[in-house]
Design a protein around this nucleic acid. Structure first.
Lengths: 181, 181
DNA sequence: TCATAAATGAACATATTGTTCGGTTTTGTA
DNA sequence: TACAAAACCGAACAATATGTTCATTTATGA
């Protein structure tokens, strides 16, 4: 990618996350992002269609990073190690999230949180996929998937508000209140 | 309250929920609500400060109705009946929600869902309050409360998207995946 | 070097918001 | 029923924000 393009995008991301630290998503105007990023108005619109588009792009970038390794790893089929494996994966994701705390914590505490959560859950489905199939129960798989994904996503949201626990502790809380792992 | 005031408020609520059936919260303009409700512009603003204010008022009205009986009932202190009691209360709430399906389903599937969920969770805290105290565990109460409240709220959101189950079934799913009841 | 891609910034049309205010209609009540 | 108070009306207004256009300048990489 063109060096200028990369720089501009990064400047916009920085400006955006910086603004998110001080005010709510809906209260941020495109003009403010432009001013903060110190770029031309038409430049912004040549990169992003709208403010929502920008948020989407930012989320994608973050998740691409957080989930990069997890989604491609080989899954063990040995039942005895599945639980440990999932727990390890979860903890691993939590570590990645912790690294991006400054960004994510701010996004989650704003109104933009919902959009972030929506994308987050999409990625999480891939993590729990396969684990659920091994459970035999009358409860619809749909329900279970929603339950697990929301449970974990909300756990992370809670964690970002109560930043006093280690990834291992959070992972412990999560699995202690989950009957399927 | 003045008869006119009541009528105007109802006209606005109707117009608002009707519009929510066709488009997202953020895409709805005040002018559209005014036109749909067929009232004067200044009249709207004499009732509600902003669009968000309107949503807040609508949520309050709905929840005041859904939770009306539950919050004032006497709590049993007999441990053996607590689970049944909570399950009954939950089922009862689900029945109320089902009655308001047209409103709530639409609100939840739009972006306004987040705001609705926030209020919803506030009320839910009162429902689970007390139940959690009886559990002895290392997990922070905060976490547990957040877990229960989010779990139930997300269960309802899922239900509203998959309207093929009875309140009893949903209640069953909820308690089957909850280690504390 | 040079064609291309990117950035600039001013100007523009359009849309939405929330307020104001003089005038009209409806209410509740004395 | 009469009347003051309350609610409503609606047009006009200022203030913002949005997204587009375009002619011009600048940086890039091959």
């Amino acid at each position: 990618m063109d060096r200028r393009k990369k720089k501009t995008r990064q400047a916009v991301y920085d400006a955006f996350t910086h603004l998110l630290e001080t005010k709510a998503y809906s209260a941020i105007t495109v003009q403010e992002i432009i001013d903060e990023a110190d770029i031309g108005r038409s430049t912004f619109y040549s990169h992003f269609e709208t403010k929502d588009d920008l948020l989407r792009a930012l989320c994608t970038e973050i998740f691409e990073h957080v989930f990069s390794e997890n989604l491609t790893r080989e899954k063990t089929h040995d039942f005895s190690t599945i639980e440990r494996e999932l727990q390890g994966e979860i903890t691993h994701i939590l570590y990645h999230l912790k690294d991006n705390y400054r960004y994510i914590g701010r996004i989650l505490s704003s109104e933009s949180g919902e959009m972030f959560m929506r994308y987050f859950k999409e990625y999480l489905e891939k993590v729990f996929e396969g684990e659920l199939e091994k459970i035999k129960t009358d409860i619809p798989k749909d329900y279970l998937m929603n339950h697990m994904v929301c449970d974990f996503a909300e756990t992370v949201r809670w964690w970002m508000k109560n930043d006093a626990y280690s990834p291992e502790e959070i992972s412990g809380f999560f699995f202690a209140t989950t009957p399927f792992a």
